[in-house]
Amino acid sequence: MPAPATPRELLIVAIARLLDGCRHVAVGASSPIPASAAMLLRAQKEQQDEVVRISVLGSQEHNFFTNGGVELFDCAAQGRIDAFFLGGGQIDGQGNINLVGGGGDYPQTKVRWPGSFGSSYLAFLVPRVILFREEHSPRVFVEQVDFVSAPGTSPPEVYRPGGPVALLTGLGLFSFDRQAGRFTLRSVHPGHTVEEIVAATGFKFDIPEIVPTTPGPDAATLALLRGRVREEVSECYGEFAAAWRAEVPEVVTAM
């Protein structure tokens, strides 16, 4: 019997499920978990004879782009990218994200994060934007962000084929309703509770009567993860792959 899925493997599998149906997934810099999820989706679909393209920024092997940094953005504007991942130092209940800073008056904020990167653009244009932040705490999930790097929703006159569809954290998974501009809790990761999530979230969200546990990977998926996916992701996320390997060993099972 292989070791049970780790919390990070659970996140990878949860993201891969959110990506189902995508033909081209792009992954930004410093995103090993989303990159692993895109690689898992590709490997799974390959078994069904379907092609999923992935473009992992920072990878030479898993990256189609040859036209410099601008190509991701040009592709997004043309609808050639189905899914992308965004995070933030703050994320609020309306789906706004803040990658710039908080506390005090901009630009002399108490805390300064790197900057908005491509979020102010990609959040508008990529149909399936997945908000991903492992840390689930009231300092991250706030009632209102201090700086809007990208808004969760836009007025009807603003061209916006894309936007957030989901928020995945270390505790649970939310869906995002773009009409209502509001999150709904969809599942709670094993070992955590709805109450814990309510307490750790600074914004209000909808809670259905029944909130299931986030399902983990089956044996075949786990074997793919600890085999091919981990090998592929080690090309651009060596330290991440090594830490993963130290946490759980290779799985050698007949597929």
């Binding site: 901009y106 908005s116 102010s120 508008f124 244009l125 809007v148 836009s154």
Partner: peptide
């Protein structure tokens, strides 16, 4: 990238989608 493209083309500006409603 758009600002550099405008310079490359010798035109004063380039239009770009997104961005509306941001604090950027």
């Amino acid at each position: 990238h758009a600002g550099l493209l405008a310079a490359q083309k010798g035109v004063p500006f380039v239009p770009l989608r997104g961005i509306i409603g941001t604090d950027v």
